[in-house]
């Protein structure tokens, strides 16, 4: 799994590629936590390159949603593959955070 970061004013986009599984989920959590520790409170995860997510990955998403629930905080995902979207939908996660079809639509909606 690779993660690259881009800042758009106060918004931060993390581009993730590869599999989010037991071995890579902690790396994702650390990368997100670094942003939060740096006072970034609007985080968008671009999942266009994510091919697989395990329950360990879901746990990281939920932990992030818990950290970013103050007024003014934002946490969302965009560009999900249908396979990953299906998992998040059926797990009920679509009511915890927003999911956008593309990065452009996500940033425009914030």
């Amino acid at each position: 799994m690779d993660i690259t970061t881009a800042d758009h004013e106060e918004k931060t986009v993390l581009f993730i590629t590869g599999r989010i599984d037991t071995s890579t989920a902690p790396d994702l959590e650390q990368a997100i936590n670094r942003q939060i520790d740096g006072q970034k409170r609007c985080i968008l995860l671009d999942f266009s390159g994510v091919t697989y997510i395990s329950s360990g990955g879901l746990r990281v998403l939920l932990a992030t949603a818990k950290k970013l629930k103050n007024p003014g905080d934002k946490f969302a995902l965009c560009s999900l593959s249908p396979e990953v979207l299906k998992i998040l939908k059926l797990a009920g996660f679509t009511s915890i955070f927003s999911i956008y079809p593309s990065e452009g639509e996500a940033l425009a909606g914030w």
Binding site: L58, A91, F93, I96
Partner: peptide, 9 residues
């Protein structure tokens, strides 16, 4: 994965 996710939810 869905069941574990649903429980987390």
């Amino acid at each position: 994965t869905i069941m574990a996710g649903r429980l987390y939810y």
